[in-house]
C-alpha cells in the first residue's frame, strides 16, 4: 500500500468506527436524549410520584380552566391518553387550546401532574390567519406526531 492508500484506509476506519460508536451510543442513551415524556408514558407507570420530569402533549380543546390569580388547570393529551395538569405561573404567549406544550413538574398522588414551568412547543406550519381560518386547523394524527412515546408505549389503537 502506498502512503496515500494507508491514509485513506485510516480515515475510512475512523469514520466507520465513529458511526458505529455513535449508533451504539444513541441506542443506549435514546431515553436520555428525549426532552419530555408523553401522557401515555406516564400512565404506563414508568414514573414515580414526586419525581421531577417533563411532560409534553397537546392542550385539549375546551379543557382550560383558569382559577384564582395565575392558577390554571387543563388536560394534556397525546391522542391516545390524557392527564390533568395544574399550574400556577406565567404562561407563554402561544399557550392556547390545541397548542403543543412541554411542562416541567411531577406526578402527584392523586394522578394529576403539577407543573412548575410551562413552555410552548409550536409546530412547523406557518400561514397567514385567513388561511388558517379557512383550513380550520384541527388536532389530529399530524398534530400528535411530534409527541413520541419515550418507552415506545403502544400508540393509537
Amino acid at each position: 500500500m502506498t502512503k496515500r492508500q494507508k491514509r485513506m484506509a485510516a480515515i475510512a476506519a475512523l469514520l466507520v468506527g465513529l458511526s458505529l460508536a455513535a449508533a451504539l451510543g444513541f441506542t443506549a442513551f435514546r431515553k436520555n436524549m428525549m426532552y419530555f415524556y408523553t401522557p401515555s408514558d406516564l400512565l404506563a407507570g414508568t414514573s414515580k410520584v414526586g419525581a421531577k420530569l417533563r411532560l409534553g402533549g397537546l392542550v385539549e380543546r375546551g379543557s382550560v380552566k383558569r382559577g384564582e390569580g395565575l392558577s390554571v388547570d387543563f388536560i394534556l393529551a397525546d391522542c391516545v391518553h390524557s392527564l390533568p395538569v395544574h399550574y400556577e405561573g406565567i404562561l407563554p404567549d402561544l399557550f392556547r387550546e390545541g397548542q403543543g406544550i412541554v411542562a416541567t413538574g411531577s406526578m402527584q398522588a392523586n394522578g394529576a401532574f403539577k407543573a412548575d414551568e410551562v413552555l410552548a412547543k409550536h409546530d412547523e406550519n406557518y400561514m397567514p390567519p385567513q388561511v388558517a381560518d379557512a383550513l380550520k386547523v384541527q388536532d389530529g394524527k399530524h398534530a400528535c406526531a411530534p409527541f413520541k412515546s419515550v418507552n415506545k408505549v403502544e400508540a393509537a389503537k
Binding site: 408523553t38 409534553g56 412541554v102 412547543k121 409546530d123 412547523e124 406550519n125 406526531a145 413520541k148
Partner: peptide, 9 residues
Amino acid sequence: WNSLHQGST
C-alpha cells in the same frame, strides 16, 4: 427525539 424545537418546515 422529542424536542422543544419544531420539526423541519
